[in-house]
Write a protein that binds this DNA or RNA. Structure first.
Lengths: 336, 336
DNA sequence: TTGTAGGCGTTATCAG
DNA sequence: CTGATAACGCCTACAA
């Protein structure tokens, strides 16, 4: 491929001059030579080598996107938003699936560092996030945390208020007359799982209800977790009229398993989810859930990251978005 | 960050020696110095700068993944497979969404070239693929086409036989007694759409049925396409007992619209899809469809691409996978 | 076994 | 307005 040297030679100028027109530092280049250089670049179909440029500028215009699993329907829209936004600003993204494994997260951060990405959008459900944060800081890599709420430190991050979301939907279930409410939570170590659980707990308390540990099970945020959760609950023999799930995927699994056990939804048991993944409105019955503004989260995280990278002024380094209750058909009013 | 120079200095060796141990060219390095160098690298938490290395080796260990839209549930699994496989071989991937726009495809190829990715997995539904192929060849970039069948040229590619898949499912519908079968196709310009249509056509012919153009509509591979397709069909006033859709997303849309119009599925109208996206088994009724081995496609495409890049021996440059008919609940037997 | 020196394609710093 | 020239961090003949 043609290099800057070729262009310089054919245009009868120095590479410095070519570099100037490439980078639009056109003060210092006569319009005439500028046009000539442009013409040669055109003829040669010349593309500056970003690797070489990266070596000297220490900028690659590449971002890392670390997430648990693009196959989880919660993430494609986020990934899309991140890519769109990155692209808008002239960046590309390297996609990394970690399966929520802390060792993979660490490895990816190392690799991304050695590839000199300019920054990282980091979504992790594992608790050792703080270790990775230290790693990122040590590497002096700009980063933005996404989706997984993490303590009160002022780390750059974009979140949806899981506590409020879960509080709202639980309150809705309570208002529909349910009192024996089972809960299938996320993994105990996942920070966002704790927040959602807190919202659930608070809603019960608001209604003066005691927490029944027998109706609480831990899940894994996957369909299998919903199925297993229901099996576990059924096995315990406690009655319940509603199952509140910490995400949609588990709600889908729960509904499947409940149907399989002969329950009608929502006539016999109501079910709720969280996330509002695309599937939610096509399952039967359509799932009542809490929508997270996924696209917006990805977009804001990326905008924030790029501001961090380019050292532009920033208002808030922590952005918390409001979730939205989506009422569909999976919760029935019960008469007490 | 520490560079190879720092390591060299602290280990009291030349950078050449450090380079040797980095690259395991340890013939030529005494075990003693090797250990010393390793120790210093450890202490410094040294990571070789891949950008600098890329500049001289002309290898970045990065692949481009170009696809229409990661938000389309058909692609996450492919993306996951590509990433997994790339990772296994020490590569990362840059994700690019094109929205099936030829100009975006071209732009991404250019950018990926200038970033010196080692190769590209390219999924496109636009017909001008051949133009991009020329572009890729001109850039001397290894590439593998994925999913979208393209003429008979011996271009590296991994496909699922859409013709056979559509033939099988249409035959199944016919065997269930349906004779008035509507078809909602993909975009006319999409190569794979043509193949699927051909399979549909052939199945009808096998049964001695004539093609009724009034029952054929063009879609867009999205949910909206299914909805609009049904509306269009209904508007034409022709009777039909089954709707064969060129992909699952349109089948989902079609079912929604049919239900909205008061039809029961499959009692009044049967519906089929294509792809077997995750959602397919959770819609109501569960969708009868054709499964494409997505993960395998992504995996094989990436393996092939890496062989191309690393100039390893290759058996077949074109790989065609067999689709699989998945019978669920959306097709009913009709008595004639 | 080890080191020297040149070069990969750019940008940045000077000087003219 | 233009051009040498020195980096950037690493690899790789070639020498020693």
């Amino acid at each position: 491929m043609a290099t800057i040297k070729d262009v310089a030679r054919l245009a009868n100028v120095s590479i410095t001059t070519v570099s100037r027109v490439i980078n639009n530092k056109s003060e210092g280049v006569s319009e005439e030579t500028r046009q000539r250089v442009l013409q040669v670049m055109e003829n040669l179909n010349y593309q500056p080598n970003r690797v070489a440029r990266g070596l000297v500028t220490r900028r690659t215009n590449t971002l890392g996107l670390i997430l648990p699993d693009i196959t989880n329907p919660f993430f494609p829209e986020i990934a899309r938003a991140v890519e769109d936004t990155a692209n808008k600003h002239g960046y590309n993204i390297i996609l990394c699936n970690t399966d929520d494994r802390s060792d993979k997260e660490e490895l990816y951060i190392r690799v991304l560092k050695s590839k000199c990405v300019d920054g990282i959008v980091f979504t992790s459900s594992t608790t050792p996030v703080f270790r990775h944060v230290r790693q990122l800081r040590h590497y002096k890599m700009p980063f933005v945390l996404l989706d997984r709420y993490f303590y009160d430190e002022q780390l750059p991050g974009v979140y949806t208020d899981g506590c409020q979301g879960m509080h709202e939907i639980t309150r809705f279930v309570l208002e529909m007359g349910h009192r024996e409410i089972a809960y299938i939570g996320g993994p105990n170590e996942a920070p966002n799982s704790m927040y959602r659980y807190a919202g659930f707990e608070r809603a019960l308390k608001d209604f003066g209800l005691a927490l029944d540990k027998e109706l609480i099970v831990e899940g894994n945020y996957k369909i299998s977790g919903g199925r297993e959760g229901v099996l576990e609950l059924l096995g315990r023999g406690r009655d319940f009229t509603a199952v509140v799930c910490a995400n949609d995927l588990m709600a889908v699994g729960a509904m499947e398993e409940l149907k399989g056990a002969g329950f009608r939804i929502p006539e016999d048991v109501s079910v709720t989810g969280f996330d509002d993944i695309p599937m939610a409105k096509y399952v039967e019955p359509k799932l009542t859930t809490v929508a997270q503004p996924c696209y917006q989260m990805g977009e804001m995280a990326t905008e924030l990251l790029i501001k961090l990278i380019e050292e532009k002024p920033i208002e808030d380094v922590v952005i918390t978005l409001k979730p939205r209750l989506i009422i569909r058909d999976s919760v029935k009013r019960v008469i007490q």
